[in-house]
Design a protein around this nucleic acid. Structure first.
Lengths: 186, 186
DNA sequence: TGCTAAGTGGCGGGGTCCTCCGTATCGTAC
DNA sequence: GTACGATACGGAGGACCCCGCCACTTAGCA
């Protein structure tokens, strides 16, 4: 594993590009076979570059994850800590519902013993942590809430609204409900 | 379709019993083929009694659904409307997390054009509605909240915590978080 | 220009879902 | 008690998928 060969790098990019479209069209369990066929490579090659379906999903959504991280960094300096956090949650919800399969990708890392280096949710969590802690310091969020909690909640929302006529709208509605609380009563 | 033949009824019950164990063991996408094999019937027979996987799941969790309905009826007369609703939500969470695949069953009805007669969530919703409306009248819950919202939220929680070391505990923790609100601010 | 290791792709095995169709069985009418 | 028709059964077969193996090609270095 000194350095990847040129053709390998090319195939990697090609497969990734095809996989993006395929996952967008058919969700998290798109056919790896079909991806290989469309990309014009053998199915073994797909498996070689992405040993598990999770690895593929993780790579596919890598860019979106980066976008969200960048967004979190931007928002970390906004005036209103609470609004900033809510903004970011809303963005996460939009991403998670628009990109079919992203929710699954976010969830299922940590489930198996995979290397956590490129695990989606961890990469996200790190970037959001400052945002959350600032909101906590401002008294807008209870101190025991973790970034993992937030991500889990939103991905759950995305999963649960997947079969809805308008997932994004529904998820967003439920998000505001979750933010306000079903029955705060405090 | 005058009346089912005796052997058909027997097979129906047999398949259901096997399916319960199999779903408990392997989740919502247990192998129908395996169920048929264990039950000692042809795979076509399974499909004849339960045309879709959803139909099978719906039947499998029918009893639990009934339990939850009964629970809702009981709680409908409790002293504290808010506590009653929260009680029921907690029960739903416990069920949804303990029974692997139940969350999927609750979600995916309505997704396709199936007959909604025996759809899980509808059967649940009807029973919970009084509970919810009472809580709304008591001012504990915002009036625009629907039973479908509650069920969606909880199933989302169950799905999102499925890969957690201790799903039930985690889901319950997140439920209280959702009830109180991430950031109520009111 | 050769050589070697990295990379490839096709094949076969095992599994699932689903449909079709010949056959066995139940329940009834005689 | 028997014969018959509708009902229900189960196995075969096609299409698809995931996965591992292994002979072959090709890139990149000397």
């Amino acid at each position: 594993m000194t350095v990847q060969r040129a053709d390998a790098r090319r195939n990697h990019a090609l497969i990734l590009a095809v996989a993006e479209k395929e996952v967008a069209a058919h969700g998290a369990n798109a056919s790896l076979e079909q991806i290989a066929r469309t990309a014009g490579v053998g199915s073994a090659t797909v498996r070689r570059h992405f040993p598990s379906r999770r690895a593929l999903l993780s790579a596919v959504f890598g860019k979106r994850i980066d976008d969200l991280r960048a967004r979190a960094v931007d928002l970390a300096e906004a005036d209103d800590p609470r609004a900033a956090l809510l903004d970011w949650l809303s963005a996460l919800t939009a991403y998670a519902t628009s990109a079919r399969g992203m929710a699954d990708a976010l969830l299922q890392d940590g489930g198996d013993d995979a290397d956590h280096a490129d695990a989606c949710s961890l990469r996200l969590g790190g970037a959001v942590d400052p945002l959350l802690r600032r909101a906590v310091r401002a008294g807008a969020v209870a101190p025991e809430v973790t970034t993992a909690d937030l991500i889990t909640l939103v991905t759950g929302l995305a999963l649960a609204t997947e079969h809805h006529p308008n997932p994004a709208a529904e998820a967003n509605r439920l998000l505001t409900l979750t933010v306000r609380g079903i029955s705060p009563q405090s």
